[in-house]
Design a protein around this nucleic acid. Structure first.
Lengths: 114, 114
DNA sequence: AAAAAATGCAACCAATGGGTTGCATCAATC
DNA sequence: GATTGATGCAACCCATTGGTTGCATTTTTT
């Protein structure tokens, strides 16, 4: 994500799918597992949830599409790893939103005190 | 949201719908409008987007359900306002995730250096 | 070479989501 | 009190999503 500026429509179009990917409890669980449990395979991951392996695969695909995880084949297995960059993006988007809010509050305060 | 601790399943169940509400470009646009443009009515808001008023109403309902906006009737109109608290929650969830990641990196580093 | 393990692919299903249109209701104004 | 404005409610539509099952493919391992 390029620098500062405000939340343009283009930004929102980038931010939306990112947050959408985070908007599912199972996917958040997968991120936590990959964060703290290190790189893992699908079968290993699906052991931790009560849905099928294929369901987990789909969730991982969604996360990969959003850039939150990546995978690499290694022999007969595929290893999934957490990708911190995009989480930083999400963080910045939220930061910008609350900054816009603060600026608006500042304007309001200045107006009232006039 | 209560204090520190890690990302328990209960937390994830709370976080998911919050991020899901943020996971739509129109809804993010609405939040930006309400942040910087101050409290507004549905009809006024829908003027800024190319979807129907009813579509905007639905989006606002989703945001309200997630606690990101609130509304109050005022005569014949309903005024919608941004609610910053829940945004802070989202921020903290992301913060915790990246903290878990940092901890894992720390462990890895310690292991390698042994 | 055969069996076992890990993944990939595809079809299918029910539910949800984002959108629409049409009409009813409620409040303000002339 | 009749008209205009702002919302509310409901039905409906199509695409997407989250889930399933069954089978094919590719590597190991014995």
């Amino acid at each position: 994500m390029s620098r500062a500026e405000a939340l343009s429509p283009a930004r929102l179009k980038d931010a939306a799918p990112l947050f959408a990917a985070l908007g599912d409890a199972t996917r958040l669980g997968l991120l936590v597992s990959l964060c703290s449990g290190g790189p893992l395979t699908v079968t290993r991951l699906s052991g931790q949830f009560d849905v099928s392996r294929q369901a987990i695969t789909k969730h991982l695909d969604v996360l990969a599409e959003a850039g939150l995880v990546k995978s690499a084949r290694h022999g007969r297995e595929r290893i999934w790893t957490f990708e911190p960059k995009r989480l930083e993006d999400a963080h910045q988007y939220l930061e910008r939103l609350s900054r816009e809010w603060d600026v608006a509050l500042g304007r309001l305060k200045a107006f009232v005190e006039t």
